[in-house]
Simulated assay, not measured.
Amino acid sequence: MTDPKGIIVSHTIERAGTNLSISGGIDPAILKKHLLYWDSIAYPIVNGFGPNLNVLPDLAYLESEGILRLENVTINPVGIIPGCTNENNVVPMQFMPDLLAYGQIQLAKEKLTREEIWNIAQVGEALSFSSQNNNNKIIFELRLLEGLPVPDPDVSFDDVVNFRISHANELNNLRKALENFRTKIIESSEPERTLVILKQELYDSILNIESSLRKHKIKHFFDALSVYLNVSTNQLATMSLGAFFAHYAGMPRDLGAIAGMGFNAILKAVEREVRGAGMLPKEINDYMYLYTAKKHRIIK
Rank of each mutant, 00 (worst) to 15 (best):
E116D: 09
L207C: 00
L202H: 03
L202T: 13
D254Q: 04
Y248Q: 15
P57C: 06
S10L: 03
L99A: 08
R275G: 10
I22C: 10
K300E: 07
V91C: 01
I120D: 00
N234D: 14
L280E: 09
A121T: 07
N180H: 09
T238I: 08
I105T: 03
N86Q: 10
G256A: 08
Y228S: 08
S232N: 15
F181D: 01
G276T: 06
R182L: 03
R114P: 04
R214A: 05
G48N: 11
H167F: 11
T2E: 05
I75S: 06
L31M: 07
R297V: 09
E187F: 05
N89L: 06
F263V: 07
I298E: 08
Q106E: 14
Q200H: 08
F263A: 02
N72P: 12
E141T: 13
D204E: 11
K184D: 05
L236C: 03
E146A: 14
R182P: 02
P44I: 13
E87M: 11
P153T: 11
P153G: 12
K109Y: 05
V91W: 02
I26H: 02
P252F: 04
R275D: 12
L202G: 04
N173L: 12
D223S: 15
A126T: 12
T85I: 07
E201Q: 14
G256S: 05
L99W: 03
E273C: 13
N135F: 09
L207S: 03
W38Q: 09
I266C: 03
L144E: 09
N89Y: 10
E141D: 13
E192V: 15
S240W: 01
L178F: 14
H167Y: 14
N54Q: 14
V9F: 02
T233S: 15
A224L: 12
Q122E: 13
K215W: 05
T183V: 07
L68S: 02
H296W: 07
E283S: 14
N285P: 05
L280F: 11
V123L: 14
R175V: 04
V155N: 06
F49I: 15
L174N: 08
D39A: 09
P4K: 00
L53F: 09
T12S: 14
V9C: 07
S128H: 09
P191V: 08
E170G: 02
N136T: 14
S212I: 02
L31T: 04
N264C: 01
S189K: 12
E115L: 15
K294N: 14
L207R: 00
K32N: 08
K295M: 13
A259P: 01
K294Q: 13
